[in-house]
Amino acid sequence: MTEPSTRAETVELAVELLAHLEREELTLSEAIDRIETVTTSPTLTREILDTAEKRGIVDRDGARLRVRRGGTYVNYETQVVTREGSFDCRRCGAGITTGHFVRLDAGELGPFGSSCIRKVTGRDDDGDR
């Protein structure tokens, strides 16, 4: 994966990830779990959430977020690619030999293990680590 090189690219990648979640509602903690696959900077995380809200991608209500995605899920057939190699999962840190990468307009995000890719995209109901 090519890391986003600028602050703006990082924000765009994370906002696009939030826009593609398959869950309509999630806790702030679950949203941050997804954002941390792009950045662990608290100031960037706040900027990402603010940007997503300003663009109408999410509505915040206290510690809950409602995703207003308009049906733009990650397509596993065209947007998720796998590569063989020696990787560390970007979400949980586990060593993996098959990396799953999400291709978004703003960039590529990964690698993830087979269960973490489902959590990151919101396909798995268990958003907690």
Rank of each mutant, 00 (worst) to 15 (best):
V58E: 08
V81M: 14
D59E: 15
Y73W: 15
G85K: 00
F87P: 00
R90Y: 04
A63L: 12
I57N: 02
G71S: 03
V74E: 06
G70T: 07
N75C: 09
Q79F: 05
D88F: 14
V67S: 03
I57V: 15
R68S: 11
A63K: 10
E84P: 01
E77S: 14
E77H: 12
R66Y: 11
G71L: 07
A63S: 13
R64Q: 13
R55D: 10
V80G: 03
V67R: 01
R90C: 01
G70S: 06
L65Y: 08
G56E: 01
D88H: 14
T78D: 10
Q79S: 06
C89T: 03
R60P: 01
G71V: 07
F87M: 04
G71Q: 06
V58I: 13
S86T: 13
G85C: 00
R90L: 07
V58K: 08
V81T: 15
Y76S: 07
V74K: 05
G56K: 03
T82N: 06
G85L: 00
G62V: 06
D61L: 10
C89A: 01
G62C: 05
G56I: 01
Y76H: 10
Q79R: 06
G56R: 01
D88S: 15
V67C: 02
E77R: 12
E77T: 13
C89N: 02
N75H: 12
Y73P: 13
G71T: 06
G85N: 00
V81Y: 12
G70H: 04
E84A: 08
